[in-house]
């Protein structure tokens, strides 16, 4: 564990807590893409198949349970909670994400570290996470005004993978046999997808104005 990865995990945890706060405090999920939440639930379920087979550390196991539990809880809330579900922007959140799922799974069948069930699903989860934010970014552009908590949620979600890129650089420099090309390239693509969001987020922060994404 290094400081970059810890910062990344904490930033990721903060993004989850901000989202839970928004949904719990406002009893609303307006501006949140259910499709992105479902993609993230798939990412965690596919990535943490080793949850019970490989014990890395208590921290690792607890964080995996937190991410799986929170993503499933958010999906459940947005689909079935009688108050929250009413504020879901169903007509705006129309990204056909099964194309993404199919493409990522196909890529994982071709490009993986080892051809085993667990490794193919792990690579699938890495590719899928890189594009999982797309429905959310599309929804933000369509819904125009972005409330603060939603903006902060997306910001922290994007920032965490940027910390992971620093972590991979650090591990590449300090660990002789460390190579995680799949994670690195996907992480770069993932962070690049947030580039324009980060730009408009910075502008809104600098001008102390409401976050506006151009349609």
């Amino acid at each position: 564990m290094n400081i970059f990865r810890l910062a990344g995990d904490m930033t990721h945890l903060i993004s989850v807590l901000v989202l839970l706060l928004k949904i719990y405090a406002t009893k609303s999920c307006s501006g949140i893409s259910l499709k992105t939440q479902e993609l993230y639930a798939m990412v965690f379920l596919a990535r943490y198949l080793d949850l019970f087979s490989d014990f890395i550390s208590l921290y690792n196991t607890v964080m995996k349970l937190v991410f799986i539990g929170s993503s499933l809880a958010i999906v459940w809330c947005m689909r079935y909670h009688r108050v929250v579900r009413r504020s879901y922007d169903r007509e705006l959140d129309t990204f056909r994400y099964w194309i993404l799922v199919g493409a990522c799974f196909t890529l994982a069948l071709v490009l993986h570290e080892k051809f085993s069930f667990q490794e193919v699903f792990w690579a699938f989860s890495i590719y899928l996470e890189a594009v999982a934010i797309l429905p959310q970014l599309v929804l933000l552009q369509r819904s125009g005004n972005v409330d603060n908590l939603t903006g902060q949620y997306v910001f922290f979600l994007g920032a965490y993978r940027a910390f992971y890129i620093l972590n991979w650089i650090y591990r590449y420099l300090t660990e002789p046999r460390f190579t995680r090309w799949i994670s690195c390239v996907s992480g770069l693509v993932q962070t690049a997808l947030y580039a324009d969001f980060f730009y408009y987020y910075f502008i809104s922060w600098k001008n102390n104005a409401k976050l506006q994404l151009p349609a």
Binding site: R5, N60, N167, R171, F178, S183
Partner: peptide, 10 residues
């Protein structure tokens, strides 16, 4: 599995 190739990252 030594540390570097174990999936020790989240």
């Amino acid at each position: 599995k030594d540390d570097s190739d174990a999936k020790d990252e989240l």
